[in-house]
Design a protein around this nucleic acid. Structure first.
Length: 572
RNA sequence: CGGGGCGUAGCGCAGCCUGGUAGCGCGCUUGCUUCGGGAGCAAGAAGUCGCCGGUUCGAAUCCGGCCGCCCCGACCA
């Protein structure tokens, strides 16, 4: 492609309102323009990159037996009602009505549509397993779109769906996807960490998220260098030892009320009383779950993790109680709450409190707390759950090594759905024994544009993008220093023709611009190799060969006649 | 949804407090000079000042309402 004829609108200044590196660079390098919140137009450079990512995804899907289909992105509400998700997923699903007033939805995933095809046309176990996929825009009415393409309201996703006869088959399809995804990421220059995750509203038994470490990320994951353990913070566990259990008394006297007129927070209480460090306090939180007040107890220094809470109670209808609700339920204000003697409402205690003695908690009377609390003895009514967020540096629950927290972005998510969709939608096949059995399904998503943005997050420098060779919009850019110089122009044109002939994607910067502008632009758009037929090298029959991102400062020269071979070697 | 900020030329911004008919840099067009890391000079094109209403002789500026976008939080397959 000739730069002078191309639509490559690069910008000198950072756009206002962009913070993430990938967002800034995608705008500056002319990959995207914003249309609205979370809505981006992809310009030619971006479509080139995405086409290459899609090609990699297609190859790897084909390699595991995937077959490409293309389904409507506009769905009648009926199938969403059939699966139950119409009422389950709430606001993130874009809903609309057609001219007759019929409810419709824009695809956020396509379990229902794929399942509807499977139930009509997969009738026998003989046809299983099947892996079907599509690459299609998806829509989600995000509460807060952000970071450019990293969290948009419309995005491009490869979603696939597996149909098996039984759990063993599903395990195989799931593993195939796991392996295929790893290959896709590796080929795209990414090294995401697979973690166990919460399945959320997708349903199903097990899911793995692929998380790319990234400054602009929004999910925290927990990793362990010792054993390779990795999990989403929403699911991670750890050893909470070394925090006071050892000092617990073997037995303690009956709970004793003491005055705490000026101590309303965990910290104030810890400051005022030696016997009440945060690790010895019981934090009491009131949540309203499915409209009913519920108590959660945690060690004083731990945080309630709301996703774990949702998983533990099996509902997402939850919110912190308002002050007046708390007062009504417990008779005291936040700051003096406790669960001792509370019987009318459900009490859930985090595992970190199990067996603790000599604890301090609120007395449900403003200005008073209780000491000498023995959890097993004084809180017999509690149900044990894991609802706390783990903390950096705690011992790994597998091997005890200290765990680390990392900020990441999700670039793929694979689910074992089981019969979550096939059961309500009655998608069944006949077994070899002639019995009807529901299809056992999996679903697998991978974000095409998110991979593109994540690759930029992982590969850029002060000058711009540094594309991995496999997904770069061009293999090489030819940048003559001075296009009006006949010798340079002829050399550039000859190289352009030769390189294209050899099968490379070539960008010829034939603009009548000063060299500084050309070099800056070339760096910004991140093409892996730049060939400069300039006066200095040409006198020796050479061209400069510059590798993007190579900071060694060495200028390499290559004989004109060897350029094709050299590039072939380096792109291999 | 709660809190904060911002909407003025394609992009980045000033002007608004203290009302008088819109400006700077980049980019763009033309010419001349220049030519190895975002050149210089000169001339030029380009703006419903987010929208609606109000106050006023007069509104980018003051008042009210609405819309949009960004950030923090809540939320998030």
């Amino acid at each position: 492609m000739r730069w002078s004829q191309s639509f490559l609108p690069t910008l000198r200044d950072d756009p206002a309102g962009a913070e993430a590196a990938s967002h800034i660079l995608m705008v500056r390098a002319g990959l995207i323009r914003q249309l609205g919140a979370g809505l981006y137009s992809y310009l030619p450079l971006a479509t080139r990159v995405m086409a290459r990512i899609e090609a990699i995804v297609r190859e790897e899907m084909t390699a595991i037996g995937g077959q490409e289909l293309r389904l409507p992105a506009l769905h009648p509400a009926e199938i969403w009602k059939e699966s139950g998700r119409w009422d389950q997923v709430d606001a993130t699903l874009f809903r609309l009505q057609d001219r007759r007033g019929a409810d419709m939805a824009l695809a956020m995933t396509a379990e229902e549509v794929f399942t509807s095809i499977a139930r009509d046309d997969l009738a026998s176990y003989r046809l299983l397993p099947q892996i079907w996929y599509q690459i299609q825009p998806k829509f989600r009415d995000e509460p807060r779109p952000k970071s450019g393409v990293l969290r948009g309201r419309q995005f491009l996703m490869k979603d696939s769906y597996s149909f098996d006869l039984d759990e063993a088959g599903l395990a195989e399809s799931f593993q195939k996807h796991h392996d295929a995804y790893r290959r896709v990421y590796e080929r795209c220059g990414l090294e995401p960490i697979p973690v166990e995750a919460s399945s959320g509203t997708m349903g199903g038994s097990e899911s793995v998220e692929f998380m790319a470490v990234c400054d602009a990320g929004e999910d925290w994951i927990v990793t362990c260098d010792g054993c390779g353990y990795a999990a989403n913070l929403e699911k991670a566990t750890s050893r909470h030892g070394g925090c006071g259990e050892a000092d617990d008394p073997d037995s303690c006297p009956a709970p004793e009320k003491f005055a705490t007129p000026d101590q309303r927070t965990i910290e104030e209480l810890a400051q005022a009383f030696d016997f009440a460090p945060a690790t010895r306090q019981i934090k009491t939180l009131v949540q309203v779950v499915d409209g009913q007040p519920v108590l959660f107890l945690l060690r004083g220094d731990y945080e309630l993790n709301d996703v774990k809470q949702a998983d533990a109670l099996g509902t997402t209808d939850q919110r912190p109680a308002r002050p007046e609700e708390i007062e009504k339920v417990l008779g005291a204000q936040a700051g003096s709450l406790g669960a001792v003697g509370v019987e009318e409402i459900e009490v859930y205690a985090d595992e970190s409190l199990r067996g603790r003695r000599g604890m301090v908690t609120g007395a449900n009377e403003d200005g008073f707390h209780l000491r000498h609390v023995d959890v097993e003895r004084d809180l017999p009514q509690v149900k044990w759950v894991d609802v706390r967020s783990v903390v950096e540096g705690e011992g790994c629950s597998n091997c005890g090594e200290p765990i680390a927290l990392k900020k990441t972005i999700e670039i793929g998510h694979i689910f074992k759905l089981g019969v979550r969709y096939s059961e309500p939608m009655r998608a069944r096949v006949l077994t070899a024994e002639g019995k009807e059995t529901p299809l056992v399904m999996g679903s697998y998503g991978i974000g095409i544009d998110r991979i593109m943005a994540a690759a930029i997050e992982a590969h850029h420098d002060d000058d711009g993008i540094v594309w991995p060779k496999s997904i770069a919009p061009f293999d090489v850019v030819v940048s003559p220093v001075k296009m009006k110089d006949e010798v340079q122009r002829d050399a550039a044109e000859k190289l352009y023709a030769e390189l294209r002939e050899a099968g490379f994607e070539v960008l010829l910067d034939d603009r009548d611009e000063r060299p500084g502008v050309k070099f800056k632009d070339a760096d910004l758009i991140g093409v892996p190799f730049r060939i400069v037929p300039g006066p200095r090298a040409l006198v020796n029959g050479n061209v400069e060969f510059v590798t993007r991102g190579d900071r060694s400062g060495e200028k390499e020269e290559v004989p004109l006649g060897d350029v094709v071979e050299e590039l072939r070697r380096r792109l291999a």
